[in-house]
Design a binder for these strands. Sequence first.
DNA 1: CTCCGTGCAAACGATTTGCACTATG
DNA 2: CATAGTGCAAATCGTTTGCACGGAG
Lengths: 138, 138
Amino acid sequence: MKKLRMTHQREIILQELKKSNYHPAADELYERVKKKLPRISLATVYRNLEILSEAGTIRKIEISGRQKRFDWELDQHNHIYCVQCHRVDNIDVKQSRKTSLQPEDHRGYKIAGCRVEFFGYCPECQNKQQKKGEKNGL
Amino acid sequence: MKKLRMTHQREIILQELKKSNYHPAADELYERVKKKLPRISLATVYRNLEILSEAGTIRKIEISGRQKRFDWELDQHNHIYCVQCHRVDNIDVKQSRKTSLQPEDHRGYKIAGCRVEFFGYCPECQNKQQKKGEKNGL
DNA sequence: CTCCGTGCAAACGATTTGCACTATG
DNA sequence: CATAGTGCAAATCGTTTGCACGGAG
């Protein structure tokens, strides 16, 4: 494990991520960071989000939609996904226990439903426990 | 809503999808269909999966991983995702109630955890209830 | 000074689309 | 026959990577 340097870019990316009250995708975060560091590259944003999540400073979110999203809040909580604009917000665990029973409002969202996804290792991958698999799905 | 023709391609795609006991991604399904229809195009597979899910014949699965996956089984059930090879299987609801408490085996899978995702409409999208939003996240 | 990190452009994987042709109903 | 569906290639979208240069420690 190599040591991380705190570059100006990394600092601003983290700062902007923490500033947002929902979970922007990389390109949206890039647009905001660019206002403070106009010469920054989108690749730098991607690289830093990845590095910071590997370091445990932020967390990668598994969520619907094709874009990657990250969370600076490391505590346990669930997320809510807007099926129209693809925005992703937090939803706390207590609230979700209530809302899981029947659709209702939460943080202004009109909840349509919820899904549960399990993850782990399939039979085949348990056997050939080699290569990949460390930084994949979770 | 326009009417669907039952082309040979569509028929075989559906047949191969139903035949599999897990949830192959488009490229994998394409490889199998190609054995029966060697001249079929990958684009046709994508188009048909999309059309059939819009028609309600099959269902689009929201799951981790970058590839789209579809389900011919329309009943309520959850899914399990292999973080190593990205295979996706079914997991039935009763079993998942048990397995949600502590990691254990299911269908040979070694379960590492589960996540819950809510979906619906964000405040902003509820206001401007126009365009898109029909065929998106669910 | 040493390398980790950067910007740029090109590469990439998954999916979508424009177009002229085919074939279903 | 009308027009939904096809195959192909090119386009698109989100993300990653190779490389030469720049700056943090």
